[in-house]
Design a protein around this nucleic acid. Structure first.
Length: 749
DNA sequence: GAGTTCTACCTTTTT
DNA sequence: GGTAGAACTC
């Protein structure tokens, strides 16, 4: 590869961005404008043509997966170029592991995720003897995070609010102390401590600023104030800072991102070269027109129109189905019609495959129904979003062992595993240990190691605790070895597989599977990062999300949230749950002041639309189950998203799936998939009289029935028809419930 | 101290 | 409908 090659197939603006020599550069890259290509070429060009030492280039991405991809793509252009590509968080962790002593931490500090943070906060509230119903760990953590991101010290008063609840201040202070004591940092701490390091030890900051001759930050519209300061600190020396982003794709204000970072970049880093990439190479004209129509409704926005040479392509489809299961089926049916081999060909001339298809949704709970639909239809899929693997109990348990072995001060890990698998150490013993630890001013593990402390326990407890300590002692050797053997040994030595069986629930097979998978990813890590070992594995695992775990080489449909879809593209895209209250999300509108919340929702929808290259389907369920039976089921029909009105009419075709369809389908999913769609009939009433599933006896008022959950009761009244058929039942408990027959599975007595 | 059932809450989005 | 912690029972 020569430098000349790196400039091929670039338009004038892209070329300018690649060639820009030094000094602050702002790349305003519209959706689908070839940003990734520009960035990777630029990095390669720096190395090949300007002979910058790869070691002296720092590139920051939004996710670990993006980091890996960027690194791979640069390696394709320039083999053996050892760039530093990572997220802000892993970059911070990496620097801090090296420099921890300078801010009074040990190198082996633990990284707490949101769950660990909640555990720590729960403990704090308990220690302070405050009301746990008032001070809930989730919201507390959120608030602490928000305050940290605004640069407020623990317990500091908030100039914008004035009065701060003194109990809250106490919690915040104790939490900070606890983190210090456990030698732990949460996600926000990683960034803040890095900044603290740079500020309190300027010579260290300068060393890094000097080391990085070029700094590049991708997705700059989603950086928060702390990240802004880190960026500024790192690029202070050379001023060779290139940031890249799109204000229209800013979707992380809720976690402290500040869109002003990108809007004010020109002012803050003046003089700045600005390159605008506005030629869209990704989507059909129809998709682009829809995206443009939507985003133009944002008032706080610099006008920008994406250009395109593409063909108009197909219209977008809006499919309105009966309920969430029907929605899933409609998606399956559509995918089948697109990918069945003889069917459509994509622009590249290849027939569409399942891996060309992605399904996006606003909230994780939508995933379940979609998955069910796909699974029932036997359609392979993979889920690339949210809390899955690393949130699993068994995974967290094994990781907690690793954490404690590496960082013996980690009280949260200690509490998690002292009795997992169960070994006869209960709440009483733990409480004693906590008291002793407080008295001695040490961690729980250290307290347990003290024989005087253990002397206070009953013989049986003492034995159990000593067995536990012995176990840890034997495992200790593992932390300097390979990640795979550490994981495998912990599972083996704790007899964890047996414990999985003892839990006696339905999930034990999955648990064993998951543990296998953990071993596999440990092995992969060992191969990928030879020498990093168990320590390195733990460090990585703490910052890795599930999104990072998906790999592209299998022929499956991909499911993910709209947020994790950012930066990706697919030939065929479905966005499910395009309903008001979901997109835009109810809480985004309610909780955020003014129109900001709504505008961010609109950007999120825009991000979703612009992921699609050729085919875009929007779907909605007219009735959506939320909170099981209690929620949305009995509420009025969902409303189509208000954003749909913003899509030009000529781009969008509406389709409505009929009600009776669901009933015919009951029990036999296969038959539905090729069932007909019907064109919307504005005047027509769809509800028909076939209220009952054919093989179920007709219900009548007065009949006695049993419900799986509510028990026995009497039908007072029957209402509605079709999918809407309901029974009002008075149960023994005295409760009167309205149940949808379709779901209630009432048993006749 | 362990195991079972009960209850509340949940559903924004993630490093 | 599913989870996680609390309350309750043995």
């Amino acid at each position: 590869m020569t430098a000349e090659h790196l400039l091929q197939n670039l338009n004038a603006e892209q070329r300018e961005a690649v060639l820009h020599e030094g000094g602050p550069l702002l790349i305003l890259a519209g959706a689908g404008s070839g940003k990734t290509r520009v960035i990777t070429r630029r990095l390669a060009y720096l190395i090949l043509a300007r002979h910058v030492d790869p070691m002296r280039v720092l590139a920051i991405t939004f996710t670990n997966k993006a980091a890996r991809e960027m690194k791979d793509r640069v390696l394709e252009l320039v083999p053996r170029s050892d760039l530093w590509v990572s997220t802000f968080h892993s970059m911070a962790a990496r620097v801090l592991r090296r420099e921890a002593a300078a801010i009074g931490y040990k190198n082996d500090f633990t990284i707490y995720d949101t769950y660990d943070r909640s555990q720590a906060l729960r403990a704090v509230v308990r220690e302070l003897e405050l009301d746990e119903d008032v001070y809930k760990p989730g919201p507390l953590g959120h608030q602490i995070s928000a305050r940290k991101n605004r640069g407020l010290a623990p317990g500091a008063s908030d100039p914008d609010v004035g009065h701060v609840d003194p109990n809250y201040s106490k919690i915040e202070i104790s939490y900070a102390e606890k983190m210090k004591q456990c030698c732990a940092m949460d996600f926000d701490d990683l960034l803040l401590k890095l900044l603290e390091l740079f500020e309190t030890r300027p010579e260290i900051g300068e060393r890094y600023a000097k080391r990085f001759e070029h700094v590049l930050v991708d997705e700059y519209q989603d950086t928060n104030p702390t990240q802004y300061k880190i960026t500024a600190a790192l690029s202070k020396g050379t001023r060779n800072l290139c940031v890249c982003g799109d204000p229209d794709q800013s979707i992380y204000a809720w976690r402290g991102a500040d869109i002003r970072n990108i809007l004010d970049f020109e002012r803050d880093f003046a003089p700045v070269t600005v390159v605008r990439l506005e030629m869209n190479y990704r989507s059909t004209k129809n998709i682009l027109a829809a995206a443009q129509g939507v985003i133009e409704h944002n008032s706080r926005r610099r006008a920008k129109v994406l250009k395109s040479d593409a063909a108009p392509g197909e219209k977008l489809s809006m499919i309105e189905s009966v309920d969430e299961l029907d929605e899933a089926r409609s998606i399956v049916a559509t995918i089948r019609s697109l990918t069945g081999g003889k069917n459509i060909k994509l622009k590249n001339g290849e027939p569409a495959r399942l891996s060309d298809v992605a399904i996006f949704y606003r909230a994780n709970f939508l995933q379940r129904a979609l998955e069910r639909g796909l699974r029932d239809a036997g359609m392979p899929y993979r889920v690339a979003s949210g809390l899955e693997f690393f949130e699993r109990r068994e995974i967290k348990d094994i990781i907690a062992y690793l954490k404690l072995l590496i960082n013996p001060s980690d009280n949260v890990a200690f509490e998690r595993i002292i009795n997992v698998p169960t070994r006869g150490i209960g709440a009483t013993t733990l409480e004693k240990l906590q008291n002793e630890a407080r008295r001695l001013g040490c961690g729980l593990y250290e307290a347990a190691l003290d024989r005087h402390v253990r002397a206070g326990f009953a013989a049986r407890t003492r034995n159990a605790v000593e067995a536990f300590l012995g176990l840890l002692d034997r495992l200790k050797l593992l932390i300097d070895g390979r990640a795979e053997s550490a994981v495998a040994e912990i599972v083996y030595a704790t007899d964890y597989l047996k414990y999985c069986g003892d839990l006696g629930d339905a999930g034990d097979v999955d648990r064993v599977e998951n543990l296998r998978e953990l071993e596999v990813s440990a092995r992969e890590f060992d191969t990928r990062e030879p020498g990093a070992g168990a320590r390195g594995f733990l460090a990585e695992v703490a910052l890795v999300s599930d999104t990072d775990r998906i790999n592209g080489d299998c022929d499956r449909v991909t499911l993910m949230t709209l947020h994790s879809a950012k930066g990706l593209e697919f030939p065929i895209v479905f966005i499910a749950g395009v309903e008001d209250g979901l997109i835009p999300h109810r809480r985004a509108i309610e909780e955020t002041s003014g129109t900001d919340g709504l505008e961010e929702e609109r950007r999120l929808f825009f991000v979703g639309i612009t992921r699609a290259r050729e085919h875009l389907y929007l779907t909605r369920a007219r009735y959506r189950t939320q909170f099981g039976q209690r929620g949305g089921l009995f509420e009025a029909e969902t409303a189509p998203s208000r954003f749909l009105d913003e899509i030009p009419d000529h781009c969008l075709q509406w389709t409505r799936r009929e009600d009776s369809f669901v009933f015919k389908s009951s029990g036999n999913h296969k038959s539905n998939e090729d069932s007909q769609y019907s064109q919307i009939d504005p005047g027509g009433q769809f509800g028909d009289a076939e209220a009952q599933v054919s093989d179920e006896p007709a219900l009548q008022a007065g009949m006695r029935v049993r419900h799986a959950r509510f028990g026995e009761g009497k039908i007072l009244e029957l209402r509605g028809s079709g999918a809407n058929a309901r029974a009002v039942v008075k149960f023994r408990s005295g409760d009167e419930k309205q149940l949808l027959l379709q779901y209630a599975h009432l048993e006749l007595l």
